[in-house]
C-alpha cells in the first residue's frame, strides 16, 4: 500500500516538474512576442520628407512630423527655407512660432529661440536641431 502511495507521489512530482518546465518554457517563448508586440516600431532614421512650398507662407511657420518628432518649416524670405526640430532642448515641450517677433517661444518655461534655432533667452541649454533643406520643383525636401 505504501509502495503504491510512494509511486503515486513520484508520478505526481514528475508530472509537476514536467508541467512546470513546459510552463516556464512557454512563458519564456511568449514573453518575447508580447515584448515585440508592445515595443515601439523603429522610426526610419535619416529619411526625407517632402512638403509643398505653398504650405508655408513668407514669415510663417508650418509644423509637421519628421522622424516621429515635431518639426517646423520656416520661410523667412521668399524662396529661403529653414527646417528645425520643434522640440525645446530644455524639457521637451513643443515650441510655438511668434510671427510678429519672428522667434520661437517655449510655452513651458519661456525659453526663446531665434528663427535659426539659437537660444535667445531662458533655460534651454542648446539650440534647436536643424535639418538640411533642398528644393525640388514645387516641393521642399527636408532631411
Amino acid at each position: 500500500m505504501s509502495e503504491i502511495l510512494e509511486s503515486n507521489q513520484q508520478r505526481r512530482t514528475f508530472l509537476g516538474i514536467l508541467l512546470g518546465g513546459v510552463g516556464l518554457v512557454l512563458a519564456g517563448v511568449f514573453t518575447w512576442p508580447i515584448f515585440r508586440f508592445l515595443a515601439p516600431q523603429a522610426e526610419t532614421e535619416g529619411g526625407q520628407i517632402r512638403l509643398a512650398k505653398n504650405e508655408v507662407s513668407v514669415g510663417g511657420a508650418h509644423f509637421f512630423s519628421f522622424q516621429g518628432l515635431p518639426a517646423v518649416l520656416l520661410q523667412p524670405q521668399a524662396g529661403d527655407y529653414i527646417a528645425l526640430s520643434a522640440v525645446c532642448t530644455h524639457l521637451g515641450c513643443v515650441v510655438k512660432w511668434v510671427a510678429d517677433k519672428r522667434e520661437f517661444l517655449c510655452p513651458c518655461h519661456a525659453g526663446q529661440f531665434s528663427m535659426e534655432g539659437t537660444v535667445l533667452a531662458g533655460p534651454p541649454p542648446a539650440a534647436l536641431e536643424s535639418f538640411p533643406v533642398s528644393l525640388e520643383g514645387d516641393q521642399v525636401v527636408v532631411g
Binding site: I34, F37, Q41
Partner: peptide
C-alpha cells in the same frame, strides 16, 4: 500584418 506577433495575439 505590421505589428510584430500581432497575428498571434
Amino acid at each position: 500584418n505590421d505589428i510584430p506577433y500581432g497575428w498571434l495575439i
